[in-house]
Amino acid sequence: MTDERMIIDIHTHLPAKSGVSTATILSEARRLGITRLVNLGAWPLNATPEQVQSANDETMRLVRRHPDTLTGFAFLNPNHEKGFVLGEISRCVENGGLRGIKLEVERNARDPRLDPIMDACASLDIPVLHHSWNKTVGKVLGESSPAGIAHLGARRPRTIIVMAHLTACGMRGILDIEPYPNVYVDTSGSQPFSGIVEYAVKRLGPERILFGSDIPGRDFSCQLGRVLGAGIGARDRDLILGINAERLLQL
């Protein structure tokens, strides 16, 4: 894991709520050859406008501090007033140097309330990373399934959407998004169940898959292991681990 290959992790949350220091996280990434982390930030469920702003302030501060290692996305709660949400995009992306938007579970992806956000991202040419999970139990109100993400992708074909949590979306989730070339998927989520990376490569093509770890709730080594352990070719692996993200983020 120490060769010169570029590895970009599209799904990380800093600063760690568990108290693990950012320095420790960055040094662990270095140990494993991960060259860049996309920081989606850390925020509470149903964050208030003030909490959204302070989470994004922290992401911008971290990105300014570690420009060679961190790229930041702005977190938004689509339940907030439209003017505030769009204002936050312009504050953090147009003026703050962040390179994408993160949406979680506050509004389902099928809700048209998301559309102005998607349109703003399309005109700024930045991706949206959206939480998704095919849950049997424990679903949160508003949480999106891959079918919901597919609905969003179909509604807003000019916006690049990264559906989070490949393993948790499962084969069904891959089939849900397959018809929409603007929808990508990250490799994080659940345990490292075998076969899913190969299946995603086969159905979506390696260009639509991005390595993501979801640290610090997860372990870089375990998450990297599922890509390195998959039965895919070296070129596919390199696309997933870094080349796709580099292109998407225009690094």
Partner: peptide
């Protein structure tokens, strides 16, 4: 490792830690 349910490499990499 919980092979073959899981990829084997993640467990090996966890141990490498």
């Amino acid at each position: 490792s919980h092979t073959p349910f899981f990829y084997t490499r993640p467990a090996v990499m966890k141990l490498e830690g």
